[in-house]
Simulated assay, not measured.
Amino acid sequence: MKKNYSFYSVLTAIPIALLILVSFSSGQPGNFTGSPGDGGTTCTQCHVASSANFGGSAALTGLPNGYMANQSYSLNLDVQGSTSTKIGFNITAELADGTKIGSWTPGTGTRLRTDSNGLTHNSTSTGSGQNSWNMTWTAPATDLGAVTFYYVTNQTNNNGSTSGDQVTTGQSGALLTNGDETFSAFEMYPTQVT
């Protein structure tokens, strides 16, 4: 009896490959924004970029000039000009030392990351070719200092593998709290006494 190891290897590999390929179809678990708190990791840990460029650029809008304690802000992450029909994202907010800050409320097509320290896409948004996500970030209860938003988008070629995709990373400028903003705008002038 001749043993066919390659046949059995293929039979074993198929379910494992399918599990890996669909594991993030409902949204990847998190820690992929490229931020210091996420260890600098992005979607390129799994998705391999190719020379095929979907031409899309990502932008985060709705950021305030300065945040107020416990105030909620409506943000929008938008991928513009992309020809990809399947796009995902991940976003988080951090202090300069990588500490996560604030809380997130998912919008349509989004869900909390598994660590609850940011948002990611869900399966209904990536399957529909959605390229814009609304979300809410709520500032912390106390003034913790400047916050930076880190995000990543992944425009895929929908070939069922992790190759040929385009990963775009970005971050907002650090936001100053209103207290810091007021202090930095304060000017001091010498007073002449006669």
Rank of each mutant, 00 (worst) to 15 (best):
Y5K: 03
P15N: 02
S116R: 10
P106D: 10
S35Y: 06
L95N: 11
V79Y: 05
T136F: 11
P15S: 06
P15I: 05
F7N: 05
N154G: 08
N4D: 15
Q45V: 14
R111K: 07
F186R: 07
Q28A: 08
N117V: 07
W137I: 04
Q166R: 07
K86Q: 12
V193Q: 08
S6N: 04
F183N: 15
G173I: 14
A174Y: 06
T142D: 12
A49E: 15
G56T: 03
L144E: 14
A174G: 01
T41E: 11
C46H: 01
L60C: 13
M68F: 14
T124F: 01
P190Y: 06
E187M: 14
Y151G: 04
T177V: 01
N157W: 04
Q45P: 14
P15T: 03
D180C: 09
T138Y: 05
A174T: 06
T85S: 15
W104I: 06
T12Q: 09
G129Q: 05
N31L: 15
G170Y: 08
Y8N: 09
F183L: 15
S123M: 09
T110V: 00
Y189E: 11
T182M: 15
H47T: 00
V48S: 11
T194E: 15
P190M: 05
N4Y: 12
R111C: 04
G118T: 08
V10S: 12
Q130P: 02
Y5I: 11
G164V: 13
L11W: 03
A69M: 12
T148G: 04
G34A: 02
N65C: 05
Q171A: 11
N158G: 07
S6K: 12
Q171Y: 10
G37R: 01
S116L: 13
G129F: 01
N70P: 11
T105M: 12
T33G: 01
T153I: 11
M1F: 10
W137T: 07
P190V: 09
T142R: 04
